[in-house]
Design a protein around this nucleic acid. Structure first.
Lengths: 341, 341
DNA sequence: CTGTTAGCGCGTTCAA
DNA sequence: TTGAACGCGCTAACAG
């Protein structure tokens, strides 16, 4: 194990000087000495021990990211953004997945605390379970007491820096856009009853319809993932409604719904229109192309890190608007029927 | 900042005793003392400093994973498997993405060395660029000199533990399976000329055809990702061949090819059959369902970690067979034409 | 510009 | 069973 001391000895300088050359910030070392140290380090193949640095400096260069599921493209895209931003700061990223288990989420925060992680980034909505929220918040407080910064990507909460997608607004605009295509009777695959992201998107959509004077849509609850959307879609079909357009509050659910419709021989958009939310990358290869509300996922991840690193006294909320993207999966009824604006 | 010393003081015991209770392995502490320390730790909300532990023990509990692109489902699935296995060992995972840049790959190994990472896992094939390979290997050697273990997921190389998908064998069997459906004239979207994974799968497929006495297929090279497949597919169509079936060496490329075919009005499998390799999760929602060679991606990730953790003197290679999965994207010509076995 | 030295928080001998 | 003391590799005063 080659230590700084070995390098210093090899170069014939003191430990401090070697440290200044190799890892110091304020560099005030003679040119000759510098090259001597550098060549000694190269010769010995010296590599800093960043854990020792962390201990000495009382500050690490690692950012911890907590997501629910890395195989979910939504989180993968966010993680990608975080990693790109971390690169720019020469920081290292450790990722923990919760698999939607609040216990595991709390455990990850504790683990990141132990690592003396400089920043903790949390993506993904939580259930509104008071007990768990309280425990989670308490663990975050312990973490912050060690001097770390927290930022979340999702609904503002816990009084920390937040990158906040405008879920309500995006869904509201989506409702209007769908109405613009002549749809009036909707179903919403609304995801979990208690999950804030799902609730906000549903509420935004309902408000949009309500402002247009449209009747309340059929509401179906399920898990937030693909299979949740799949099951809700089957349920919807079994209800035999006169709905012409379905809004799934996540793209994953929309993809699941699409599969369910296909299984039942229901063609999108001919028989039923469909829209999602997020514009996750794999949507690119879904047929028919899915209407959605685009969120700049990678940018959101990067932004969260920047927020945390530039933390000020008062927590900031960075709103991120979504952009309605109309694609094939929504039919245009305005030519077919005439009772429209 | 609550340290072990603070806990010891609070409990009225020595630092050593507190250490033994809270983090020690061989636990030989009086029951009363133990509870005193534990309640002191709880009261003070003590959290170990694992960087200090790493320094003191000379051994960390972090596993570093290097992948090319986390938004690529292939790597995301592997990462997921690694993280699940890491959980079982109470280890933490830090992930670095190379974006297919060899320089960044080397830089990540250096960074993981600095972190005194216990294990480095490397997924994804490298180009056969001698200069880069030498530098990469050298950096790995430096890492291993610090006492860390390396395992790779891909072609055996560098003399380290390896989880090795049987690319040649899988592609060979795929060729036979496609022949079993009556196809005889093939094209291979073969990816990069120099990349081992691509080369192996291509070679396996060629050998399969050759053993059947079939003519050599049309060979097209491109990047290994979706767009590479897309572009190669367009190129193929422009060649006006009499090919009936296309093998893309990765699912991502197959998905890209599918999009290209769709753009040109070529229907799969009616006009052209298509197969990929890997069976990445999002394939589930591709239409038509894609024939492929299934690899247990998450298991491969987990296996790599286990290999590295149980490292023995001689590097081991764990072969992972692929399983041919025939799906809709391949037509059955055996009913349509009669000049077949 | 360079060297000496005192910690950073913890694990682990060695004694008691 | 417990405690005292040293060292892990490095940074950051403080001197020189």
């Amino acid at each position: 194990m080659v230590t700084l001391e070995a390098v210093a000895k090899e170069a014939g300088v003191s430990l401090a000087t070697a440290s200044r050359v190799l890892n110091g910030s304020t560099r005030q070392v003679g040119a000759l000495t510098r090259t001597r140290v550098e060549s000694a380090a190269a010769k010995l193949r010296y590599r800093v021990d960043s854990t020792a640095q962390t201990l000495a400096r009382g500050m690490s260069n690692v950012v911890g990211l907590i997501v629910q599921d890395l195989t979910d493209p939504y989180f993968a895209a966010i993680a990608d953004g975080v990693m790109r931003a971390a690169d720019l700061h020469d920081m290292v990223v450790t990722i923990g997945t919760t698999r939607r288990d609040p216990e595991r989420e709390i455990a990850h925060v504790a683990s990141l605390t132990a690592q003396r992680t400089r920043v903790v980034l949390i993506a993904g909505s939580r259930d509104a379970d008071d007990v768990m929220l309280r425990r989670f918040r308490a663990e975050l407080d312990v973490y912050r007491a060690t001097g770390g910064q927290v930022a979340i990507i999702g609904e503002p909460a816990f009084g920390v820096d937040t990158v906040s997608p405008l879920n309500h607004e995006g869904a509201y605009q989506l409702a209007r856009a769908l109405a613009g295509r002549g749809h009036q009777r909707f179903a919403v695959l609304a995801g979990p009853v208690l999950m804030l992201t799902a609730v906000e998107r549903t509420a935004g959509f309902l408000d949009g319809l309500s402002d247009l004077g449209f009747p309340a849509p059929v509401l179906l609850h399920s898990r937030l993932d693909r299979n949740g959307g799949h099951d809700s879609a089957l349920e919807l079909l079994d209800m035999n409604t006169d709905v012409t357009c379905v809004f799934a509050v996540t793209d994953a659910m929309a993809v699941g719904a699409l599969a369910a419709f296909r299984e039942r021989g229901v063609q999108v958009p001919r028989d039923l229109s469909l829209a999602g939310f997020e514009d996750i990358p794999p949507l690119r290869d879904v047929v028919p192309a899915l209407t959605t509300v685009r969120l700049p996922l990678a940018r959101m991840g990067a932004l969260a890190l920047e927020l945390a690193l530039s933390h000020e006294d008062v927590p900031r909320v960075e709103p991120v608007p979504g952009e309605v993207v109309l694609r094939e999966s929504v039919s245009d009824l305005t030519g077919a029927s005439s009772d429209l604006v």
